Simulated scan of single mutants.
Amino acid sequence: MEGYNKERQNCDSRSPDRINFQITEFCRTSEGKAIMSASRPVSVHNPHLDAMTEDILYHFSLGTGTHDLPAMFGDVKFVCVGGSSTRMKSFIEYIAAELNMQDPNSDYPNICAGTDRYVMYKVGPVLSVSHGMGVPSIAIMLHELIKLLHHARCTDVTIMRIGTSGGIGVEPGTVVVTKQALNDMLLPKFEQVILGQTVERSTDLDQSLAQELLQCGNELKQFPTVVGNTMCTMDFYEGQARLDGAFCYYTEADKQAYLNKVRDAGVCNIEMEATVFAAMCKLSGIRAAVVCVTLLDRLKGDQLTSSHEVLVGFQEHPQILVGHFIKKQLKAKAAGN
């Protein structure tokens, strides 16, 4: 517990009311560099798993007793997750073509076909998984994904969330690579109630990865790419200061004042998963990034006015950027760099 308490002090010094949970936080040095071994395993921090004869990943319809997870997933190096099941199927088809790994005899079967909660596809070292909408849905998926990668003995994994968002002061179609995930109080933390008490976890993301993705955007020159803060909310309507929900008890002036405050905090976009994604990936020692395209500028309105064709094009921007990044990484590895 002594080492644990020291880690808690380093990671959680801003939160004196945190409870003393036996959770090993994945900390960073003062320079912001991750403390990890040369080969980065996927960490789980749950001693109860060791006592289990079988771990059933219920929402994936997979398990250690029914599937050879190391054989199925041991070569995974890149995981891309997104809210839409259709979008994640499109992504695996796109990345297969980009990596010249198309299989004309395969329709890229859904590995999680035994459940209707999530979908999962794999091509070579790339895994594509849907997570639904909102913090609760992605949190459930991440628990099981992290355990899957751990059971499969994967190392040096990079996870990227690709999705859509509402922009703040940026043009529609802009890809925002998240610098810091902020909650709806504009604080860099994720809060969760465990055993009736609130636990706070850091939402730090890998800054070197963010810069690498920004460089990929600069190389592509197909759409604007920026690095900025992302605000994660628990609601799509009132939680994001929209005026078009079923309920609204504030004015247009109230909305604009709030969104300007959000912009002043360096926020470039708003979505509904970034904080828990960042927190859970950090706890697991996984290099992670959030890459979302903006579909509108919320300072100018609440509803989408672009045509369907334009919106579909926008939604392809994150997968194009991430696909370019993955190709660069694999090329560098093949060259021995």
Rank of each mutant, 00 (worst) to 15 (best):
I35Q: 08
A38T: 14
A38W: 08
A38P: 05
A38V: 11
R40S: 15
P41D: 02
V42S: 01
V42G: 02
S43G: 02
S43V: 09
V44Y: 09
V44A: 08
V44F: 09
N46D: 14
N46A: 12
N46C: 10
N46Y: 05
N46K: 00
N46H: 04
P47N: 07
P47K: 06
P47R: 12
P47W: 06
H48M: 09
L49K: 13
D50A: 14
A51R: 06
M52I: 11
T53V: 01
D55N: 08
I56F: 05
I56Q: 06
L57C: 08
H59L: 10
H59I: 10
F60N: 05
F60C: 02
S61Y: 07
S61Q: 12
L62P: 10
G63W: 03
G63V: 11
T64D: 09
G65Y: 03
T66M: 10
T66I: 11
D68M: 04
D68I: 03
M72Y: 08
M72F: 04
M72C: 06
F73E: 05
G74W: 03
D75R: 07
V76I: 15
K77R: 15
F78G: 05
V79A: 05
V79W: 00
V79I: 12
C80M: 14
C80N: 14
V81Y: 05
G82A: 11
G83K: 00
G83Y: 07
S85G: 05
S85N: 11
T86S: 13
R87T: 03
M88F: 01
M88R: 08
K89D: 02
S90C: 07
S90D: 15
F91H: 10
F91S: 03
Y94D: 08
Y94H: 11
I95N: 11
A97E: 15
A97H: 10
E98K: 12
E98Q: 13
L99F: 09
N100K: 14
M101C: 14
M101F: 00
D103A: 08
P104Y: 08
N105P: 02
N105T: 11
N105S: 14
S106L: 01
S106P: 04
S106I: 13
D107W: 00
D107F: 05
Y108N: 11
N110S: 09
N110Y: 07
I111G: 00
T115E: 06
Y118F: 15
M120F: 01
Y121G: 04
Y121D: 05
K122T: 10
K122L: 11
K122W: 08
G124T: 02
G124Q: 01
P125W: 02
P125G: 05
V126K: 04
L127Q: 02
L127C: 09
V129P: 01
S130P: 06
M133Y: 06
G134W: 01
G134M: 06
G134R: 00
V135H: 03
V135G: 00
P136C: 01
P136F: 06
P136I: 00
S137R: 12
S137V: 01
S137G: 07
S137C: 04
I138Y: 03
